[in-house]
Design a protein around this nucleic acid. Sequence first.
DNA 1: TGACCACCTTACTTTTTGGTAAGTACCATA
DNA 2: TATGGTACTTACCAAAAAGTAAGGTGGTCA
Lengths: 121, 121
Amino acid sequence: MTPYSAATGVENVLKILEGRWKLIILFHLFGGKTLRFSDLERAIPAISQKMLIQQLRQMEADGIIRRIVHHQVPPKVEYCLTDWGQALCPALDALLKWAALKDRDLSGMEFPADATIGGTV
Amino acid sequence: MTPYSAATGVENVLKILEGRWKLIILFHLFGGKTLRFSDLERAIPAISQKMLIQQLRQMEADGIIRRIVHHQVPPKVEYCLTDWGQALCPALDALLKWAALKDRDLSGMEFPADATIGGTV
DNA sequence: TGACCACCTTACTTTTTGGTAAGTACCATA
DNA sequence: TATGGTACTTACCAAAAAGTAAGGTGGTCA
């Protein structure tokens, strides 16, 4: 595992999460919630329709969101997380926990080299 | 913890990592390595001097990189990770492990709601 | 004297990303 | 006939990020 392969691996993950809206959408769907397009619009008033649908479509293409179309009038489309999308939760949690370490005293702490990256790179 | 507070927490972490070069630089420094400016230039030939220094300064301001100036001629400046920077390793590892789950069968797996986010949001 | 090294800085251009406003299709109800 | 609700699409514009190219500051060495 070279610095490049590790970096591109993480980069590919970040690409899925990047952008101004993806995380907000994600956190609205965490916990198995299923929301309609208009629910999301209401939940995130600052987002435009274009941005909302653009982000939803990208996340669907990335495989973290499932789109369910009900053929009705008026139309009804629902969004929820895929299993894989739900599985993001602990990974994001690890990031938050890392952020919480800032300004703590880390001296004496061990950051083991058993991880895939770092240490034994 | 609302969807907004959780999302902004993660966003603040992503801001530190975002950009085309930060991760590559980071992975070159993981494992306690200390490198000079010119070492990094050589290690990452595609980066311009401006980008390299810009990213290094930002990461220094964010507190994940330490900058050590030796007052010599010719100048010598070294860069290494702070303790907090090293501590990023397991969190990034969690992201890589998540990415590796893709296309696996996740049915039956539990993603507990005990995490800071999701579940009980 | 001047060429060079290492570490930056500045000015300018291109690319990417985000944002606004308007429009579409479908049918239901008044 | 027209009004409205839902889920989009399109055209256009602004701001932010990244890239290119050049300059600049000590000093040493030939």
